[in-house]
Amino acid sequence: MSAASSHTGPEDPGLGSGTLQNVKKVFGMEGASDLVAVKDISFSFSSGEVISLLGPSGCGKTTVLKMIGGLIEATSGEITVSNSLVRGPYENVGMVFQTPTLMPWRSVISNIKFPLEVLGKQLTDIDDKAISLLKLTNLTEFKNAWPHELSGGMQQRAALCRALIHSPEILLMDEPFGALDELTRMEMNDLLLKVNYQEKNTVIFVTHSISEAIYLSDKVHVFSKRPAEIRKTININLPHPRNPTDRYTDYFKQLELDAGEALGVIR
């Protein structure tokens, strides 16, 4: 991607990379025994990679994601992102949730610029960045619309722009396309990859869809039921850029089978 010369990835290869070392999370419950959400998780990711955390609902994968983002503190173990220890929220992270969570009182463009506003970043090229993101996600003509005037997929695209506006090194996505219909979801998968090829940031993607995880990722960590442990790590050796027909290759099906077995849905 020589066209994206202004954004050829971080200068320091450590930016956007990270490590989780024996991470454990126990939630103290009032009047009940403590809940072990995450038992012992270790993995690492390098800059620009797309990593999926695949597992059943309620298995603790979202907790892992939030710990990487500094929103939840690990009970024990160490998390390092971009060469520094995670001790709380930090700027270089973009978040996309299951629901778009746009602010209904702000126009699309104003929602997208929100992070810059609160981070107090006065980038000279804010508008350029916003415009290029809108273009990338086909939202240019809706930039002044109210969020409720957009479809679910369009809202989620706007949420993706918002997460990327401050050029974070790492993008955390918590089942972002889980509420969309299958066709929209496949479109969003390709869009996310397109964005990733341009922005070069690391993506940590939580999902419970096997094919989505495989299609998007360089590496899929298959989680057990709660308390979360990594059952299996699957390396995805599909060529970049991905092509929708990849989904129907024998290799892809073999990967799906592997993931299904690791999840315990195929015995």
């Binding site: 983002g69 929103l71 929220p89 299951q98 609160v118």
Partner: peptide, 22 residues
């Protein structure tokens, strides 16, 4: 919405910012 508050927290918004803006 809980997720908006989470977004605010991840962007390190102050109490005042969260109140006024969200």
């Amino acid at each position: 919405p809980k997720e908006l508050l989470e977004l605010a927290r991840s962007l390190k918004c102050s109490y005042f910012q969260i109140f006024v803006k969200i």
